[in-house]
Amino acid sequence: MSASLPSTSPFPFPRFYNFPPFFSRQPTLQTHHSQLRKWSTLILNYCRHHRIFKLSLIDALDTELLYNKSLDKRMGIGEVREVVEFMRKEGRAEWAGEGGKGVGGNEVWIWWRNPEEWASLFYEWVDDTAQKHTVLTLYELTESEATISQEFHGMDPDLLQKALSILVKRGKAQVFGQEDQQGVKFF
């Protein structure tokens, strides 16, 4: 997992990023579908590269992800929403907000790993490092130096809760304590 260090290196954009029509909604259904798939791949790879868990669409519009400066082409908010909807149907994104009801909202979870996958990743890591039955603070899990080489390092606390609650449901972990002082024990 050497590639999982937070990379400051620039993201290697795929070739179609430099294809001007890529930023305009294609009128032909088949072409549009191909376009959506390419965008979906691009967003997932980009977020994985930069360890972005939750994407704010409005803010992203001016980043290199959705705005190709050298071509001076950009994605509109409507087009991005369409891409997100497409990703959601593929199980690779979810609208953030109250109960996932924020459809058309601004913030969106990008599941380059979905909560299930995160949950098993946590579990594997705890298993590998022989920390079962040890109490770990949530801060330790995602912010301490011990996990700096892990993909979940620096994870959004909301997502962390989601992933842990999956393990709790399966009886593989127990979360206790108050806000900010929460700890977790894996079984």
Partner: peptide, 29 residues
Amino acid sequence: SESMLWVDMQCAEWEYWSPGFMLGTGDDG
């Protein structure tokens, strides 16, 4: 309509691009 050209609407006059150029330019990826 046959997917043989892609439209770029973000210019003064719409440009119709050949998808072959998607591979022809830019870096590998």
